[in-house]
Design a protein around this nucleic acid. Structure first.
Lengths: 168, 168
DNA sequence: CATGAAAGTAACTCTCG
DNA sequence: CGAGAGTTACTTTCATG
């Protein structure tokens, strides 16, 4: 018999994966409809969703919007070089154009994704960060993939460094 | 009198902004509750949401998940140098670890955001793309901001290159 | 399974061009 | 006077104990 390889998500079964897939593709379906899709009763699926929320697997539900339709002609990514951490965080907090801000490894310690109205607006935002440190900006031409649904990491995807061994 | 400066979102009024803000912070509230928050009746707010959807302003609703809780220990960004467009797109299609894939300007023509289980898994994904062209990977240490809500670009935020002029 | 809330539908009102 | 948007009232569907 094989030794079980447990992971952080060992408690998530097939039903939970189905639920997560459905809610990542449409977060506004009713629990009744979700139950139909995953073949569970409505109270059963509601209880599972509640547990996924309270255990922190599901962190929220958000409408996704088309930034172009909202008047933002340009999306861009800015690489921001090392600078005093607190100052960068503060500046991000003062910049609503920043949609995502990642602190990353390497020479560029920050990667920001921004949405701006036009080139003049882009210039204004870049300048705000240039005052702090060096930046490098690239405009997003298109997205081949966006917010791809994430399913629980499965054991067959894991390539363990230590092979499973048999018990005595 | 000033010439009106129209933009793509000129039809979006204060109510629509409120609706967009609410649905980006919680996409699962009922239309009745949304109506209460923005001070409109349930049928009225439902109709506005329907129009925002059909006009392409709202593109969908998604549950957001904690990738760590799903067994992915590492999030990273990969910069991928110029390569045959179709081959990159095809490879992205074959790689579920890619959450976001942006085609960008500059030397690195692609920026990919990925979620992987561990270093061995990261190595496997990076190698897939290294075969095609040069890559540069940085691990995401933390996110100072994620999916910041986007509101309609407002005229007071726009710095027009051509100033408003008076009519004859 | 029963009760209360929410969604969908229809008829009516109000305002504005 | 007609078009558009909102409200109220009512029926069906959904959520919750």
């Amino acid at each position: 018999m094989y030794i079980e390889v447990f992971s952080l998500n060992s408690e998530l079964d097939h039903y939970d994966s189905r639920i997560l897939a459905e809610l990542q593709s449409d977060a506004r379906i009713s629990m009744a409809e979700l139950g139909r899709r995953v073949h569970l009763s409505q109270p059963a699926v509601t209880e599972r969703v509640r547990k996924l929320e309270s255990s922190g697997v599901i962190t929220g539900y958000r409408a996704t919007v088309n930034v172009n339709r909202l008047g933002y002609g340009i999306r861009a990514v800015m690489r921001v070089s090392r600078a005093e951490y607190a100052r960068v965080v503060k500046l991000i907090g003062q910049t609503p154009e920043v949609i995502n801000a990642y602190n990353i490894t390497g020479e560029d310690s920050w990667l920001l994704e921004i949405a701006v109205i036009d080139v003049a607006h882009l210039d204004a935002v870049v300048t705000k960060f240039c005052i702090l440190t060096e930046t490098s900006t690239a405009i997003i031409l298109n997205a081949a993939r966006e917010n791809y649904p994430i399913l629980p990491a499965r054991q067959e995807n894991v390539k363990p460094l230590i092979k499973k061994t048999t018990t005595a």
